[in-house]
């Protein structure tokens, strides 16, 4: 059970919780911070589970409920094949996620917080060339590229064309190009001031010369036992 008090009190950059179940269907929920200082929630579900009947729609409904609870600035639903390199240059970053660098890409389901709807304009968001767009309770929006996330596998060209059309409709300048200095259109994020204060607090904290030796031995034993899972947590955040 997650303690809401613990979540509130946990310091930025110090929290990661992994909840994982392998049987009967693979499921993992990872809650924590990512490298750019945002708090993130990841839900991983084995694709075979979602491929049955209308479970992808059920999952979509579940994520909408999660949005209602968490009120994130951004969210998405994707299958791994939707990840793609941003541009051909070898030094360009593959698509990752740091909202300060722009939206990561268009995936199957795309949740835009109210700041994004305000930035793009409601008219533009709700006239997207997508399968479905819906207004969310807080002024945000969610849109689907197609009826199923697996369309990217059965009709990759069609799916990519829709992603391109949506990107053009919103404006490519709002998306992460992978280049350092390219102009990026980003909204005024609602948690920005809070993040700056937190960052300054962390910078003001005296450097701990040997933070490793101060970790209890039991924690390191757990780290060894769960090493692969902890490594996967990094993968999911980057």
């Amino acid at each position: 059970m997650i303690s809401s008090e613990k979540w509130r009190d946990e310091q930025t950059g110090r929290a990661i919780w992994v909840f994982e179940r392998k049987y009967p269907d693979g499921l993992a929920v990872i809650i924590g911070d990512n490298m750019s200082g945002y708090r993130t929630v990841h839900v991983f579900v084995h694709r075979d589970y979602l491929a049955v009947d209308d479970r992808n729609k059920e999952f979509f409904q579940l994520l909408k409920e999660l949005y209602r609870l968490l009120r994130p600035m951004y969210g998405n639903i994707l299958v791994r094949e939707m990840f793609r390199q941003v541009g051909p240059h070898p030094r360009q970053r593959p698509s990752g996620m740091n909202l300060q660098w722009g939206l990561p890409d268009v995936f199957w389901a795309n949740f835009l917080g109210p700041e994004y709807v305000e930035m793009f304009g409601s008219e533009k968001v709700f006239s997207l060339p997508c399968y479905e767009a819906e207004r969310l309770h807080d002024g945000g929006a969610v849109f689907l590229v197609s009826s199923s996330p697996f369309d990217c596998l059965t009709d990759p060209q069609g799916f990519d064309q829709r992603r391109l059309d949506i990107t053009r409709h919103l404006g490519a300048e709002a998306f992460d190009t992978g280049y350092d200095n390219s102009p990026v259109k980003v909204p005024k994020f609602r948690y920005e001031e809070e993040r700056k204060v937190e960052e300054q607090r962390r910078l003001a904290t005296p450097h701990e010369k040997d933070i490793l030796a101060r970790v209890p031995r039991k924690e390191w034993q757990d780290w060894i036992e769960n090493n692969q899972t902890i490594a996967l947590a990094l993968v999911s955040e980057m």
Partner: peptide
Amino acid sequence: LYFEKSGEKGNEESIDFVKKLGAY
């Protein structure tokens, strides 16, 4: 490359992040 570009080497230090990157 990420650390080089982000220029946030010291800022990212936290024991949980060290654990994650160390595990990877």
